[in-house]
């Protein structure tokens, strides 16, 4: 009886969260699954088309490009963005001269809206009067000048480059985690003759693993949702070379192709779920694996 009451109390307290989860997550995902089998313009009644939307995925070259770019952006986040943030966090955590000033400088771009940054970088990259081309001219590299956002080879790297250096957000996460590491570990390693690099490699990096797991998860989910920068800087061009999943979904939506847009959105949800599971498995604690 006591156990029943106890369990009932728990269930009742969980009920609002569960209801919210069902209404705002499970129901929409279920709706996506349902409408992915429909042809629907959101105004007229839905028309059942079976697997047609999924067959269209296989044939849709823009989807393939968008998927590739979205995954590449995620990989750039994991293998470039986060390591840079880790490096700067480790350096600033050593409390070098002016470290507080540097911390503010690195974090400041994260306070600026994506719109403002996009406009700024549009003018940096512009092929007619952009700052980058002007700098190249000044240093005698006119041959390197190009229309950075309108060139098939440079548009996507340029798009990633405008974001990759704004490491402030993850730098702060890593610095907060490093500050929780027991200083006595560094002191005792110093007594044993360990240098700075050895300390960072054998103490800081292993103990940062939980923060890295969180950062990897956040950067992957952020890049999956990425919309503003591609929309503002390139609108997916030139020739869809910078198309990403969220922008492709948006384009289908404003073309009244909600059935296909929902199919694409479902793919995005599935990719996101796969990434979460993969990251959790990758960063699973040794204690759990040991049993």
């Amino acid at each position: 009886m006591r156990s029943f009451r106890h369990k009932t109390s728990i269930l009742l307290f969980l009920l609002p969260a569960v209801v919210i989860f069902i209404v705002y997550y499970l129901y929409p995902v279920g709706f996506l699954v349902y409408t992915s089998f429909m042809k629907w313009d959101s105004i007229t009644p839905m028309e059942y088309v079976g697997w047609a939307n999924y067959r269209r995925l296989a044939e849709d070259g823009v989807f393939h490009l968008a998927l590739r770019n979205t995954l590449l952006w995620g990989l750039a986040g994991v293998f470039l963005h986060i390591p840079m943030a880790m490096l700067v966090a480790m350096i600033l955590s050593r409390k070098i001269a002016g470290w507080k000033w540097f911390r503010s400088i690195f974090f400041m771009p994260n306070l600026i809206s994506t719109l403002a940054l996009a406009m700024l970088w549009q003018f940096i990259y512009n092929g007619e009067f952009g700052l980058l081309n002007e700098v190249l001219r000044l240093v005698g590299l006119e041959s390197w000048q190009r229309n950075w956002l309108g060139n098939l080879d440079t548009a996507f790297p340029a798009l990633i480059a405008h974001w990759i250096f704004y490491i402030g957000y993850y730098m702060v996460i890593f610095m907060a985690h490093i500050s929780t590491i027991d200083p006595s570990l560094y002191e005792s390693s110093q007594i044993d003759g360990a240098g700075i690099f050895q300390q960072e490699r054998h103490i800081t990096l292993p103990l940062m693993k939980p923060a890295v797991a969180v950062a990897v998860l956040l950067v992957l989910t952020d890049t999956l949702k990425n919309f503003e920068a591609p929309f503002l800087l390139t609108n997916g061009g030139p020739a869809n070379q910078t198309m990403v999943m969220s922008l492709h979904i948006y384009n289908r939506m404003v073309s009244y192709q909600y059935g296909y847009a929902d199919t694409l959105a479902l793919m995005l949800v599935a990719i996101g779920a796969f990434m979460v599971i993969a990251v959790r498995m990758l960063f699973r604690e040794k204690e759990e694996r040991g049993g």
Partner: peptide, 21 residues
């Protein structure tokens, strides 16, 4: 067209005309 034509937004290419380029 100007060198930034591929990818140029309305504001960018209109400015070329308004600034007599």
């Amino acid at each position: 067209a100007p060198n930034d034509a591929v990818g140029a937004t309305y504001q960018q290419y209109a400015s070329h005309f308004i600034n007599e380029r």
